[in-house]
Design a protein around this nucleic acid. Sequence first.
DNA 1: ATAAATACGTTCAAAAACAATCAGGAAGTA
DNA 2: TACTTCCTGATTGTTTTTGAACGTATTTAT
Lengths: 263, 263
Amino acid sequence: MANIPASRQQYILSRIQEEGTVNVNQLSEALDVSELTIRRDLDQLAKRGLVERTHGGASLRRNLPVEPDYLQKASEYPLEKNMIGQGVLDLVDDGDTLFINSGTTTLEAIRALVGSGKRLTIVTNNIDAAYVCRESETIRLVLAGGVYRARSHSVSGSLSSLIIEQIWANKAIIGVDGFSVQAGLTTPVLEEAETTRAMIKHTAGTVIVVATANKIGVVSNYKTVSLEDVDVLVTDEKGAELVNQMEISDDLSIVIAPMRRSE
Amino acid sequence: MANIPASRQQYILSRIQEEGTVNVNQLSEALDVSELTIRRDLDQLAKRGLVERTHGGASLRRNLPVEPDYLQKASEYPLEKNMIGQGVLDLVDDGDTLFINSGTTTLEAIRALVGSGKRLTIVTNNIDAAYVCRESETIRLVLAGGVYRARSHSVSGSLSSLIIEQIWANKAIIGVDGFSVQAGLTTPVLEEAETTRAMIKHTAGTVIVVATANKIGVVSNYKTVSLEDVDVLVTDEKGAELVNQMEISDDLSIVIAPMRRSE
DNA sequence: ATAAATACGTTCAAAAACAATCAGGAAGTA
DNA sequence: TACTTCCTGATTGTTTTTGAACGTATTTAT
C-alpha cells in the first residue's frame, strides 16, 4: 500500500467501518508510521466529520438522523392506533397506489404498511412519513407540497391539491377528527379539510377511514366529505359498538382491527 | 504498453480503481518515467475531474460517479458548512421569499436563517427543513412535493416543478455538487438538476450559490445551469482562492463566509 | 485520593513532495 | 531543412509532511 496520507486515511476509514473503533498504536504498527502521524490523520478525518475522535483512537461517527424523538411519543391511545394500523393491512394489496392524509393514526397505518413488505406507492401530505419510509425498499413515497404546518407536521392548501390532482389512487386511507352521521368527516383545520377532500375526489377505488372510538360521533370544525363517500371504516372494538348504534348506510362496511400483541 | 500520456493515464486510472489510492513514486517506477511526469499526468486527470489529487499521489473521487450517501455527506466539513450558512445571512433581507434547494450546505443556511429572526418565506424541496423550521415563528415554510428520495431526504421531479412554477421568489439559495467554468453547476441526480433549474428560472432577483472548497472546479453528472445564471457565490477562504484562479465573468461576485469561533 | 501510565499538543528540524521555469528531443508540417 | 508543437526531465526554491523532544492533560491502577 502506498504510504501517503490519502491511502493511510482510506485504510483507517475501512478499518473503522469494520471494527467500529481503532486505536492509535495498532494503526501505528500496521501502517509503520509514528503514532504522531496517525494522530494527525485521525484529526484530519475528524475535521472532515468522518470519524469521531476519542482518547487513544477514533470511533465511527454515529449521527444517523433517526426519527425525531417526538415522533415516538406522539400519540394518545397508541395501542388502539397501532391496532388500527395493522387492521388496514388486510385492505391493501401489492401494487396499490394510496392516498393517505396526515394524523397520528394514519402515520401508524404507514408504519404498518412499511413493515408489511408490500410494494406500494404512498401519496401523503404527512411529512413524518419521510422518516418512517426512509429505510424502506418497497415503498415509493410521494409527498404533497404546500404550506407547512408545524402543529401537524403536514402540508396542506391549494398547492397540495395541485399535486394530488395529478394523481389517481386506487385507495385512500383517511384519518379524521370527527366521524358523524349528520356532519360526515370533520377536521379542525380548514386547509386539511381541503387536502383530504382532494384526495378522496381523486380516489378511483376504496375510501378507507380510520378512527379510534374517541372520534366516533364527534363533530369538529370543518367538513371534508359526508359519509356517503366512505367505503370502509376501520376502528377498534369500542368504536364498532358506537357505530352500530348509529344509523348508517349499508354501503359502509366496518372492519374491526384485530387485537394483537404489541412487542 | 505504449509510453504515451494517454496510455499511462489509462493505466493510472485502472490502478486507482483497484486500490483506491496511488502514489507518485510507485507509479514512477512501474511506468519507468520521472516522478514529475507522473505528477503532470495526475494533474491532468484531476483537472478532468476523474481523480482527486492528494499530497504524494491521488485517490478516487469521493462523490463521483456514484451519488454521495446522504448519511455520510451529512457530516462532512460541518464547520465550513456552518460558516457558509452564516455567510448567507447578510445577503437576505426581511420579507424575502427564497427558493432553497436540497443538500447539507443549504440546510445549514436554513438553520442560520431560522436563527436570524428575519421574517421569510422559504420554498424548498429539502424535507429536513420541516424539522429545522418547526419551532420558528418567523419562517413560513413551503415544501415542494414530489417523489421522495431517501438518499438525499428530498423530493424532486416534475411534480416538484409544478409547485415551484406557481411561485416567484426574489432570491434563490442553491447548493451544488460541482461548480466549474466549463460545466457550470452540476449535481449527481437528474431530478435534482431539474428541480434546481426550475427554482432558478422562477427567481426574479439574486441567484446565490453556496459551495465549500471541495466543490469548486468539480464536475458532477447533470448540469443545472451555467455560471452566467449565477449572481453570487458564497464560499470559504480556500474556495475563494480556487475561484480566483479560474476565469470567470466579472458579473459573478464572491462572498467569503466569515471565520467565526465555533463553540 | 494519589501515583503511574498513557495519550495529547506544541515546537522544531529533516525529509519528501510540490510548483515554476528552462532546455533537450520526438513527431509532425511546410 | 527549418519550424512548430508537444512531451519529458533537470534545476531551483517553496510547501507539506513527518518524527523527535518535552511539557501537559487524561486515564487507569493502587
